[in-house]
Amino acid sequence: MITLKNINKYYHQGNQRFHVLHDISIEIDRGELVAIIGESGSGKSTLINIIGFLDDDFEGTYFYQDHPIHDYTRKQFSGLRNQNVGFVFQNFKLLRESTVADNVALPLLYAGKSRKEIGARVSEVLNQVGLAGYEQQLPKNMSGGQQQRVSIARAISTHPKFLIADEPTGALDSETSQEIMNLFKSLNQNEGTTIIMVTHDPHVAEQCERVIKIIDGRVISDSKEGEKRAGN
């Protein structure tokens, strides 16, 4: 589904140029649960932003379901994001002054859905993440685990093809982290949602079927490649 070839990424800071990603080539298939691990500053967030169509400023080729993403404009990116990707962030990124229902409805609004359709879908996904009946709550009055569930509900509301999660458990205690991981796993197994997450919690990473390790912008190990090699 996702095919990255020779991705290079530079950051410019004044006259200096930082080479953040070096020749990254990854393929991810439908239904995978992938963890990208690495130390901070290794470039894993940069990589996940490129995969999730948040960053269009890179070199190399990126084919998503045969779309040449590297040729797309900013506006096309918006539509692509809306239709295909759900985002889960470390610090939830919810609109704190809006209700849970409004937050979850946001991607549906930008998809051009009507109020009526949206209401039904919002209840459905809130039920799915175990927050049935929380529609009129404000995120600022909820616990971290609950907020992360809201953001997961928002991410899956448009039936995205894959989820991008950037340190989804980074701000949560281990017990809540486990609840969130269980939710991800059930989405992956029951709904067949492809999930790509960045983490540096080894406990989280070991629950994913595939682990890609990045150091200094280079892929050091990929458990799937390892299996292939082992199979050969």
Partner: peptide, 15 residues
């Protein structure tokens, strides 16, 4: 932040 969130979930710059 709000602008970022809206853009991330699929708002176009025009929106």
């Amino acid at each position: 932040q709000e602008i970022g969130i809206r853009l991330a979930v699929g708002a176009t710059p025009f929106n």
